[in-house]
Amino acid sequence: MANSYFQFKQFRVEQDKCAMKVCTDSCLFGAVIDVSKAGRVLDIGTGTGLLSLMVAQRTDATIDAVEINPEAAAQAEENLALSPWADRLNLHPVSLQEFAKDNQQSYDVILSNPPFFLASLKSGNAAKDSAKHTGDLFFEDILTFTQKHLTAEGKLYILLPPTEARHFAELATDHQLYLEQTIEVYTYINGQCIRHIQTYSFIKPATSTISQIHIREADKVTYTFKFSELLREYYLHL
């Protein structure tokens, strides 16, 4: 029987009450987010609290984590409270819309791994169907909040499947947020691109850069050197 938790070097993530479990692409996302200059961070849809904990490990920032699902919020609150950084981790068990009503804070980094898949719509025409899809509404909520509460030089980081990531980029420009960088995440060398890690800011770049990270070697078992280096301070056996 699989463990009900995921043990990292400096913290543990209990996940038996959460539908969204700890996964490799989320861990990679947490590792690449640049929080070196962040004083305050917002984690939208924190789930188990994984990303907040990963960020807390390598920064002194105060972190607010928002989670609407009651079971996930309760589990995240427990995970954050039992971590070494509990004094600067704040769980808000509400929707982003509710959180936005009273929030007076500005954030240097806003991050999110939203669980929406426009590509799964039945018609197969994502461009046509996305206007009626609930995921699209949440994308707008993230962008509206970010436009109002991200600091002038702050960054928005988001993890999405490729189709959804491209759609999010289109929506972002209407909120004066511009795609700076995309990291394409591949399952293994010569494998499938499963996620895009995107970085947005209010400053429009001359060009938007694209890079790649492969999680495993061509043997589909061994972690690549680049992945290992990024996760070394988190994973127990790296």
Rank of each mutant, 00 (worst) to 15 (best):
P84N: 08
D43F: 14
N113L: 11
A119H: 15
N113R: 03
I110N: 07
Q57H: 01
L121N: 14
L121P: 05
N103P: 05
Y107I: 12
G45E: 10
S123W: 01
L89T: 03
D60W: 08
R58N: 08
V94Q: 00
Q75D: 11
I110F: 10
V109C: 06
G45W: 03
L91A: 10
E78L: 13
S95H: 01
G45T: 12
L82W: 00
D108V: 03
R88H: 04
G124W: 12
V94G: 02
F117K: 02
A56L: 03
N90W: 05
Q57K: 06
L96S: 00
H92D: 08
D87F: 01
L42T: 14
A100V: 07
D108A: 09
L80V: 04
A86Y: 04
P70F: 03
K101T: 14
A74D: 09
L121M: 15
V66L: 12
L80W: 02
S106H: 15
E67Q: 04
A74Y: 05
L51R: 06
F99V: 06
Q104S: 10
G47L: 11
L80I: 13
P70T: 03
E71L: 14
W85T: 04
N69E: 15
S106A: 09
I63W: 02
T46V: 03
D108E: 07
G47R: 09
N103S: 10
I110T: 05
F99A: 07
A73Y: 00
P84V: 03
T59V: 03
I44M: 11
V94D: 02
Y107M: 10
E78S: 13
G47P: 01
F116L: 11
N69L: 15
N90R: 13
L80A: 09
L89Y: 06
S52N: 03
T59K: 00
R88P: 05
D87H: 02
S95L: 01
T48E: 05
N103M: 11
S95N: 01
E71M: 11
L80C: 10
Q57D: 01
S123I: 06
F117N: 08
P84Q: 12
V109Q: 04
V55K: 01
T48V: 06
